[in-house]
Design a protein around this nucleic acid. Sequence first.
DNA 1: AAAATTAATGCGTTATTCTGCACTTTTTAA
DNA 2: TTAAAAAGTGCAGAATAACGCATTAATTTT
Lengths: 249, 249
Amino acid sequence: MLKRERHQYIMNKFQEVEKINTIDLAQELKISEDTIRRDFNELNNKGLINKVYGAAFLVKDKPNNVFDIKIINEDRKIIVGQKALSFLSEGQVIIMSGGTTNLSFCKLIPIDFSATIYTYSLPIAMQLSQHPNIELIFIGGKLQKKAMVTIGIDVIQVLSKIKADICFLGVSSLDLNQGLTEMGYEVSVVKKEMIKASGKVVALTTSDKINGKMMHKVCGLEQLHAVITDLNPNSPKIKSFVDAGLNVF
Amino acid sequence: MLKRERHQYIMNKFQEVEKINTIDLAQELKISEDTIRRDFNELNNKGLINKVYGAAFLVKDKPNNVFDIKIINEDRKIIVGQKALSFLSEGQVIIMSGGTTNLSFCKLIPIDFSATIYTYSLPIAMQLSQHPNIELIFIGGKLQKKAMVTIGIDVIQVLSKIKADICFLGVSSLDLNQGLTEMGYEVSVVKKEMIKASGKVVALTTSDKINGKMMHKVCGLEQLHAVITDLNPNSPKIKSFVDAGLNVF
DNA sequence: AAAATTAATGCGTTATTCTGCACTTTTTAA
DNA sequence: TTAAAAAGTGCAGAATAACGCATTAATTTT
């Protein structure tokens, strides 16, 4: 029996039992206790099990993997993303901001879509790196770790030098009077610059972001060429925006 | 029997069995064990199978999620990473290149470690974004999608302006005579610049990268202040490097 | 098609990994 | 604190793998 098989055996066994005794398992598999101990140690070091005196337990909550991006309300975001697809056309130069709504959108972009995309979001860049025909340019700078986007003067500088056809802008809060607002100052500055750099601005948002205000203003509604939400444009929550002359999809 | 046929044969066989023994398959096909081992190694490096001591297993293809970074030979890379930890000290300015060896290393860095880290690798940036006390700066540019690193003039420009205490350099190939070499031209240029920008250069590599040459030279051995491998420094494979005056850990 | 080039293969040798045993150290329980 | 159980350590033997090299097969060029 190979080491690898034993390790698999051990991990499988935890689906039946809570605890595995060193000696019991040695007898069960007819191998020495030393081998079991070494196995337990290895699995313990990999963080898969919890080795204690005389036995081992399964580790329940696996260490939170950074790469597991949790998308809340993903169904809504997929609806938004699907509507947004109609704004894409081949060969565009695109600025893609951050956020999980934009990430959901990016997952829906056809694999062979061809364009140039600027982004400052790590998860979005990783997602888009799957697309062979997208020329992907990451805007470097200091990382705002929580949102996994770059911020600061370096980002502004790059943005000030480019000209894009369209910008897909993630939204923190959208309000009829306040327009688009952000929680963080730095991100608000970056988004302002993105808008300046883009011919068209499309805001992507789920309905829960609508009618809220945050500290820092990004732009007024009049600067948004389109707003895409998960709601039906006739829905009452949206009506006031439509009445104000906004293109809501 | 051609190599391709054997590879095909192996992959097909996994539809029937869980595990393929090296020796059994050699007998079955009436070819030498070496050939089977070489086949297993190749398929392993392609990420198609999992080679272990004495046999190989099928890699169960998970849902194709970009965010699942597959680290081959992860155990070896963890050994390298653990040794590399001793080169860290608080407050350093660090340049971290890309690659899964460096990614494994980053996973091992204590959560409260404090430093300034420059990187041009998306996965590494995401990993390090978990560390609250690391000032993380992403070097922007055009994305080399396969390796998920930025390349090009923008990267060079940023690197030419900074001065770091230490650089942890991932390795494509390391050879006694050729030194450090890379497959891609662009990455070789970036790595050269990283070396220029750093006071100390530490190369991180697994033993399978040793004694290979690739197209583009990065630097000679004399420019490496330390080389960290998964092998014991006394190991014969390393001996010639130690004899050449290199610090091997 | 023959020659030249390149890649693949097998063999002998050397290196590495795995495992169990004997022995020592640490931990647990009385 | 002592005895018993479990764990760690170092070592040896066996199995597996890697390496260098000579040879053969496959591919490309002439």
